[in-house]
Design a protein around this nucleic acid. Structure first.
Lengths: 323, 323
DNA sequence: TTGTAGGCGTTATCAC
DNA sequence: GTGATAACGCCTACAA
């Protein structure tokens, strides 16, 4: 492997001159710089990242930690992050699984974005104590090295439930998410607040876990109790898709007529099901861009405040007004 | 940051003793090893990856290079790779974009898996010449440091087209993919071979690019020419989804009745559309596992042969027999 | 069994 | 302007 030493030899200069020239220092004449650059080019020189990192303590790499790779959920988020980072000279590494956390501890990455509930707060704080910086997308956690960029779950869940109420629905099922999920618990909390303000509602809570299978189970339960048109708020779209699947395959009920359904996330599938799913929308891409922006600011020692990602309601024919 | 030097100081031994103890060398007594391990634990020691890499030239990291993060296409593939690698002590880094190729050139990763047509063969060969090893999923490229793990596109496309023929269809549209895609060109080649063997077929080729939008455009074209039931073979599912979308939103035609549709890839969406899309299926997860296995073998200097991922046909109601 | 010393490829601080 | 030289944190002969 060709190193600056080789270049130095070929150019007849010292390695420090080569290093300066390569790094564009003005402590070296234009001519020597040009000569060195040319030789580096000819020799096909590429710097050794590990060596540089060892010295500079900066890898220009950012890691995003996901719980898993499944689903189409993260595509736009990743794209949003990547686009933002790449024009600023940073690379994005997508990581999943306990093992990849070595990257943080072993200082291979300059900062990280966390969307992985399997990280405990303690573990994260431990890394921060060692000087690491991170943006969290999935929890509230305060530390000088942590910035929060969270979804406005409260607004979204409130919007969704109030929409059902506006449409005249009073008999409403709520299909919840896993307690380990920050988003799920926040959405549920908002739901409960709306319920408190609307005591005349007839609410049934069904435990779910954000998977399609849970949606199917919930649908089975709902169908078995069915007597008159009702509304269902699935705390994410994936479960709502499960409801569609069960209802259309195993019952004579019709979504948007007997069962008025609303979800959360506006995943790609939501626009394909018939009738279109009413849901809560937000820009994954913006979320990613915002998170990266905050992280780079922190790496740059700027002070940052926590940020929020706003949401809107998307109407589909899966909810119609009652009566 | 605590380094082996600190441990050495605390333990009252030299740094080499610490290093040996940490690496489990038998050149150091059980007692000192135990003591050192205990101190390392207490001090919360983690090795610095860059320093180790600089010396050992092994990062235990594998990179997979994707063209983009969009779509749900890659989830299972990545999971398959990750699961295989992690039990063998390797980490997976998911990379996209030109910039992240630094990881290869700068020797941050031990090997890579390529599924990104924006890599040119020349560029790849260049890396291989520098000693890098890779498994390619998206091209035929021969080099001692390259192993191919390719989809059996020929079998799949042949299966698909012959299925349409078996069902009695003779008037068939083919919606093609981008010429830059290996899979697309292989599928098209197989299609042409089937056509040669069946000269009585009435074939119409429509240029596509593997996107949903292309499927919609193709559907518009097909609908405008429609007189009698026909069959359509979209060279991937995403375009087939576009066909569904256009046909159901803009025409009175019915999939599985007027338009008999078959795709390729069996993406998640395919099972949700009504009627279910007939398509070519293969295990993304196995593909990933196989690719990783081959790569690790190469890193281990074992000789490997190119591998093939087999495919099957999944029947859905989107194709019925004609007449 | 343990310690010493050199080196991995860079960068950075000095003299010259 | 340029060139020794000492780090960075770790590994590994080889010496003691």
């Amino acid at each position: 492997m060709v190193s600056i030493k080789d270049i130095a030899k070929h150019a007849g200069v010292s390695i420090s001159t080569v290093s300066c020239a390569l790094n564009g220092s003005d402590k070296v004449t234009k001519e020597t710089t040009a000569k060195i650059l040319k030789i580096a080019e000819e020799l096909n020189y590429v710097p050794h990242a590990a060596a540089r990192l060892l010295k500079t303590k900066k890898s220009n790499m950012i890691g995003i930690f996901l719980r898993d790779f499944s689903g189409s959920f993260y595509g736009d988020l990743l794209q949003g992050i990547k686009d933002f980072l790449s024009v600023r000279g940073y690379d994005l590494l997508v990581c999943s699984g306990a093992q990849s956390r070595r990257l943080i501890a072993e200082r291979m990455i300059d900062g990280s974005i966390i969307l992985d509930a399997t990280f405990t707060n303690e573990e994260l704080l431990q890394y921060m104590k060692q000087g690491h910086k991170a943006v969290v997308l999935d929890r509230e956690l305060d530390h000088s090295h942590i910035n929060q960029v969270l979804l406005d779950n409260k607004a979204g869940a409130t919007l969704a439930l109030e929409y059902l109420i506006e449409q005249g629905h009073t008999n409403i099922y709520i299909v919840t998410g896993p307690t380990s999920s920050y988003d799920a618990s926040q959405r549920l909390r908002a739901v409960k607040q709306v319920i408190e303000r609307n005591p005349m509602l007839d609410i049934h809570e069904i435990t779910g876990d954000f998977t399609k299978a849970a949606g199917e189970v919930a649908a089975k339960h709902i169908a078995s109790e069915y007597t008159t048109p009702i509304a269902v708020f699935c705390l994410n779209d994936e479960m709502a898709i499960g409801v569609y699947s069960y209802i259309s395959n195993h019952t004579d009920l019709v979504i948007g007529e007997h069962i008025h359904l609303i979800g959360f996330d506006n995943i790609e599938l939501s626009q394909f099901v018939q009738p279109r799913l009413t849901t809560i929308n937000y820009s994954m891409r913006k979320w990613g861009a915002l998170a990266s922006e905050q992280l780079l600011k922190m790496l740059n020692d700027e002070t940052v405040d926590h940020e929020r990602v706003y949401v809107t309601l998307v109407e589909g024919a899966s909810v119609r007004s009652s009566g």
